[in-house]
Each structure stands twice: as structure tokens, then as C-alpha cells.
């Protein structure tokens, strides 16, 4: 039964897996709204904010980070078991994150270069999103996530409604914000046309191209965008790099980088 209907505050948990903590910080950055969240929900488990973990089960779990170790692969199953709703927050939890670059290489080679005693390192060959391990109820994109979108997801959970998180391209937000198109007017490479909105077109607002932090939009045509980016002077290795950042293994971005790599 809905926690609100029973008259108790729903219990919130925030979990960290392989990640930089930036998305959890977005929750703390809510500042003014944080008190409202605390009024509506019991913040039961949030180690980044409090070292006093409350026991489960939880009504809403926000999960940051990807699964990169055998221990985490077990732990996420526990999180799922104790959570009524599970929402992934950020590119790591939703798409594997920057650490999924290991998927394009040999992780043992990396550990042998980075660590003095690589045999002590227990790591998985791939960095996988939470959804590859357990069922998730909603995936919030971004590196990091957007504060307004996080509040919308929490609010929608409380109201038991669908969150307003559109899947269209960054261009929609960019034009609504009144930015001039950096691709067309400046010749600045921009992934906006193939990237999902949510950031409020932050980078183009400061005359920079979109880095694709929010992952692929609902429909993408990276072949057509790559032709434009090549015309602007990007080399194939450049193209491979722009798609292989925080959402490298998301299928449309993976295909886009592989298409560029194939041509290289």
C-alpha cells in the first residue's frame, strides 16, 4: 500500500556503487527543497549525508553508480529486495558511466598498469548499468543528474504519477532557452541533436557544444550528425572519443563510435 495512504512518511534510501558521488551531491544541493523532502519523506539511509543508517525496507531507493565488482553485483540484489521503487540516478547507474570504457578494452591490462599488485583487485570485465542486474522502475539520466529533474522524479513518486522527463533532444531545450545554435552559428561540434534533454542546454548556453552527458535521445541519427561533425573538421578518432565518455555503452552512442572507428 502507498506509504502516504497509511499515514506514515515514505522512507528514502540513497545507495552508492561505482561512481564519483556527484549525483548524490545533487540531492544535497537541493538545499531549499531538502527540508521539504525531509518533511515528506524519512531519509532513512543516505551515508553521504548521515552515518546513521536506518534499516529497510525502503519505499524509494535512489541508486548511484554502476556495477563493477562481484560484491556490488550481490549488493544491488539486496538493494532491490529491500526497495519498493528503485530509481537509478546518473550516467553510471543508467549506462555504466565513464568506467564502462573498460568494455572497449581489456580490464586486466588496465589493472596491471594502474596497480602495483593487480592480483588484489577483484573487478568485473564490464561496468554494467543497474538495469542489467536487477529490474529498475525509472532511470534518471545525466552526468551529473539535473536537480530539477531529481526533484520532479521524487515529487512524481510521492504523487504516484509519471515523472515529466521528456526523451527529446537537447535542441528543444536549447531553442526554448533562446541559445544560438553553436553548431550552425559557430561551427562548434555539439552532440545536442542526438542527446537527451534534461540539463537545460547548459553548455550551449555558454557557447560550448553538448558533451552528451544525458546519453542518447529517444531517436538519434548519428550517421547524419557525424557527417556534419566531419565537415567541421573532426577526425574519426575525435568522433570515437566524443561518443565514448559517460554513456559510451548506450547502444546508439556505441554504434556511433563504432561507425567512426570502422571508418578510421
Amino acid at each position: 500500500m502507498d506509504a502516504r495512504q497509511t499515514g506514515r512518511r515514505p522512507r528514502l534510501a540513497v545507495w552508492k556503487f561505482a561512481s564519483c558521488d556527484g549525483c548524490q551531491l545533487t540531492l544535497l544541493d537541493c538545499e531549499d527543497e531538502l527540508l521539504s523532502i525531509a518533511a515528506e519523506m524519512e531519509i532513512a539511509y543516505f551515508l553521504e549525508a548521515s552515518s546513521a543508517p536506518g534499516p529497510g525496507p525502503y519505499d524509494l531507493s535512489l541508486v548511484e553508480g554502476s556495477i563493477t565488482t562481484p560484491e556490488d553485483a550481490e549488493r544491488i540484489r539486496h538493494v532491490r529486495r529491500v526497495s519498493r521503487r528503485l530509481v537509478t540516478i546518473g550516467a553510471c547507474a543508467t549506462a555504466g558511466g565513464i568506467q564502462a570504457l573498460r568494455d572497449f578494452a581489456d580490464v586486466r591490462e588496465f589493472t596491471s598498469v594502474v596497480y602495483a599488485r593487480p592480483e588484489y583487485i577483484a573487478t568485473l570485465e564490464r561496468s554494467t548499468p543497474i538495469s542489467a542486474n536487477v529490474p529498475v522502475d525509472f532511470e534518471l539520466r545525466g552526468c551529473p543528474i539535473d536537480k530539477r529533474q531529481l526533484l520532479e522524479v521524487i515529487t512524481a513518486f510521492l504523487a504516484d504519477r509519471r515523472p515529466v522527463v521528456p526523451g527529446h533532444s537537447v535542441c528543444v531545450e536549447c531553442k526554448a532557452r533562446g541559445n544560438v545554435c553553436v553548431l550552425v552559428a559557430h561551427g562548434t561540434p555539439c552532440l545536442g541533436p542526438v542527446t537527451q534533454a534534461g540539463c537545460g542546454a547548459l553548455c550551449p548556453a555558454y557557447n560550448r557544444g553538448c558533451y552528451g552527458c544525458f546519453g542518447p535521445a529517444e531517436t538519434t541519427n548519428s550517421g547524419a550528425l557525424n557527417a556534419k561533425l566531419r565537415a567541421l573538421g573532426m577526425s574519426d578518432p575525435d568522433l570515437v572519443r566524443v561518443y565514448r565518455t559517460f554513456n559510451a555503452t548506450e547502444e546508439p552512442f556505441r554504434r556511433a563510435s563504432e561507425e567512426a572507428e570502422g571508418d578510421a
Binding site: S169, C171, V172, K175, P193, A217, N221, G223, A224
Partner: peptide, 13 residues
């Protein structure tokens, strides 16, 4: 369609 990004820029502009 092979050239269209479905990015919405035409309609927004």
C-alpha cells in the same frame, strides 16, 4: 530521413 536528425531545430526556428 537519412539526413534528418529529428532534433526539432527546424520547427523551433
Amino acid at each position: 530521413a537519412s539526413r534528418c536528425l529529428a532534433c526539432t531545430n527546424c520547427t523551433m526556428a
